[in-house]
Design a protein around this nucleic acid. Sequence first.
DNA 1: GATGAATGGATAGCGGTGCTCTCCGCTATC
DNA 2: GATAGCGGAGAGCACCGCTATCCATTCATC
Lengths: 212, 212
Amino acid sequence: MRVGELSKKSGVPVATIKYYLREGLLPAGVLTSPNQAHYDDEHLRRLRLVRALMDVGGLSIAAVREVLAAVDTREGSLHKKLGAVQEAISQPAAVELDPLAVEDVQAFFARQGEAECVDVTESNVTHMLASALSSARSVGHDHFRELLDPYLEGLKIIARADVEYIARFGSRDDIIEAMVVGTLVGDTVLKAVRRLAHAQVSREVIGDVPES
Amino acid sequence: MRVGELSKKSGVPVATIKYYLREGLLPAGVLTSPNQAHYDDEHLRRLRLVRALMDVGGLSIAAVREVLAAVDTREGSLHKKLGAVQEAISQPAAVELDPLAVEDVQAFFARQGEAECVDVTESNVTHMLASALSSARSVGHDHFRELLDPYLEGLKIIARADVEYIARFGSRDDIIEAMVVGTLVGDTVLKAVRRLAHAQVSREVIGDVPES
DNA sequence: GATGAATGGATAGCGGTGCTCTCCGCTATC
DNA sequence: GATAGCGGAGAGCACCGCTATCCATTCATC
């Protein structure tokens, strides 16, 4: 298939596909002539993945490139790959870290029996956690840290479901892609369902007089 | 206090504060002379809130303005205010909705015994949910919907903690602000802790040979 | 084999966003 | 009275994700 068909099948404009090719988000097609290239279903699949990462995950072009690099690398254990992917899809906010928030994170790790986290900025994930708690503190919510434990409790159920979902996939490539998609789509789904749960509680507890 | 001191206390450049004033994110100070205005702690508090919304919530200027409008309005029940705030902090991805994903959402509502949701696009929250599932489907993950129920189960624990947290606050204004901050900071914290849980499972289940 | 649309490749430009810079006349402070 | 800072307003800037244009070449159709 050539670029026009790829565009039709994916709904992505040709000019945008060319841009992605230039940016290295999409591998070049096989040249059959100096100005004719051939794309296959793998390209279509990759293109849809790129759009999904940007749309649902809100990833930047640079972050997508990083994720794809981690997905594509043939070396390293699955565990290492997950780590690399996690780093790429977890960009912390550019906020000055509150030392107290850093302590909150370290105390949380200690409570979970983990070796104490020397440097929260070492990983994007812990950095993200610390920066979120810093922001909370900056607006006077220094007790937000107390939610970490109940959050973890709920997330254990969720993470178990995540793992079972991932386990359905057979090949190494499918597993790593399911991790990426599952994590990002999951983030958004969790956001939405949490809001629904809040609305339900609000309806029950606070109540509201029906208008009609 | 004047703008310089406000800048020092908040860490936000004077030019940026002026910009926020122009954009209506910050109420004007009290003019003591034609070109001298006075700001108080309420301004500082608001400024920090604005930055927190943008930094941790990733909200745009427009979204922040919407949230503040909902926070500030004096009319409507608390329940209605929560609804307005939720809409403002839940911008769905600009993705074409897959009808099957819409059905997934409706089936989910039906399972929870809710009245069937006629139009998922009516609320940003349901729209967000449907667009996330649409993206998942676009990359071949049509079974992601099966995670909705376990997610809800975990989120019930989390939402309960959220409600208890909110309940600490006394005044109407503090409650609504705690909802905004708690929801947005909570989103990010959930993201981070979920990734930590994933990493832990990955370590245990998949394992990894220590290098040193 | 002529013709028109589409292609690969490269470059320039565009629209939105979140600031940042500059200038103005004025004012608080030393 | 000098100097720094002020409120206010507009222009400009950097980045990002495209989008538009151009070119020589190639493919599909007649």
